[in-house]
Nucleic acid binder design. Structure first.
Lengths: 234, 234
DNA sequence: GACTCAATTATGTATATACATTAATGGCAG
DNA sequence: CTGCCATTAATGTATATACATAATTGAGTC
């Protein structure tokens, strides 16, 4: 593991280590910039750069005239990995199969308008199931905004999962995910082969380019076969 | 909404806006620092500061001699914010109440050893319920490794939620979260006042300091009242 | 004691400058 | 054409300096 030998990076690591070890607890005032400057034998700009990075990362807070303090952490931020379903199944060594149950180009319905935040225009609505080794893995319902991605109308989504195609071909700038739990209804019962009322996890995703919504997806997983895992981000 | 009028912040906002609008697509080379410097009439240090912030945020990448480029976004990582439950309820304007149902200091059981990855020693086991406005919000079961956090034995967890106390007093270096859906059993039925078999979301969290596990928590939320939200690129 | 206001002090921003580092480029030799 | 190498142009880091800004402090006043 190679780490930068820049002075500002060293100062940053040192302060981070002192906070992580508990030596500088939340609320502690850390040394003033001019003190760090003296102890590292560098300029205040260099110290300031290290501190600013830690402030942006949320580890420190500063108040003019008073000094710089270790933050009281209020939120736990974690990196959630949301893999491409096909890749995820392949990574488990299972054969992947896709069933396209429905494909429809239509004028946006009221619900489509709400989910894609559009006033009208055409949407591509898809329903498909992802299988791992012959067993239903996930149920997916997807809307694609055809005014944002007209070329999607030409794609054969029975051959390539819509999520994989979009990821590879459509640039996007922002996404929001929503994770909920709910009891399986008739649809999930049939599509996933689970018992009525079984707990399922729903992962909804909205994807933007700029202010325009590109696609909405809702993926449903059987609760007893799926877990989302997130790691703390330092 | 107050925003900084500093030059570096303005440059940053302008570049961010161009990326978000799609004007500068992933892979595009943005103007060289000396060009931005000329067009904003400021020094290169100021431009550099703005760019560095965007690089750290993952929006830009730079290569010496070649220039600075808009990043290709990586889909599979979203930032999941897991707030302190007490703060979250307070933020919704609801009064918060905590019920401590069980508190026990004991020698680690086999399950405790597995969850905390310890060979023995004492653990503090807690069970509590978080209420928002008189309504059950979440059920929490928690184990604290007393060899890592001995002072936890002295704390009155009927007054302060264990998660809040730990967050404020114990520094950690790593955490892992696991999100699952399951059908409510007798315990959830009684504790959360939901019907039998209702879908619930379970959020499990393991927290480390260095290689030592500090605590394990399992929080259960009624599926119909709770959603976890994750953003890509704030 | 309570209030006012100016001095003090630490952080916040910006600049001009310098040199280091890296890699694209183009010329030269084979 | 190919491979090597010096040039060059971009970013990366660091410095000394300057002034702005905000909040604490403390002196002076009522």
């Amino acid at each position: 593991m190679k780490q930068s030998s820049a002075i500002h990076a060293q100062i940053r690591r040192d302060i981070e280590a002192r906070i992580m070890s508990g030596e500088w607890a939340p609320g502690t005032r850390i040394p003033y910039e001019h003190q760090l400057m003296a102890s590292y034998g560098c300029s205040r700009m260099t110290v300031n750069r290290a501190l600013r990075a830690l402030i942006e990362a949320g580890l420190l807070e500063s108040r003019r005239r008073a000094g710089t303090f270790v933050s009281h952490p209020r939120i736990h931020r974690a990196a959630l990995e949301i893999p491409d379903i096909r890749d995820e199944i392949a990574a488990q060594g299972e054969p992947y199969r896709l069933d396209l149950d429905r494909r429809e180009v239509r004028a946006a319905s009221e619900e489509d308008k709400r989910l894609l935040q559009i006033d009208g225009g055409a949407v591509l609505a898809l329903e498909c199931r992802h299988h791992a080794g012959g067993r239903a893995y996930a149920l997916e319902r997807r809307l694609i905004n055809l005014s944002a991605v007209p070329q999607a109308a030409e794609i054969d989504f029975a051959a390539e999962p819509p999520g994989s195609w979009l990821l590879a071909h459509v640039p996007w700038t922002e996404a929001e995910h929503r994770i909920t739990a709910f009891n399986a209804g008739a649809k999930e019962l049939v599509a996933l082969g689970i018992s009525a009322g079984a707990a399922c996890m729903a992962l909804e995703r909205w994807t933007w380019r700029g202010t325009e919504r590109i696609t909405y997806a809702r993926q449903v997983y059987p609760g007893d076969r799926y877990a989302l895992v997130a790691h703390f981000r330092p």
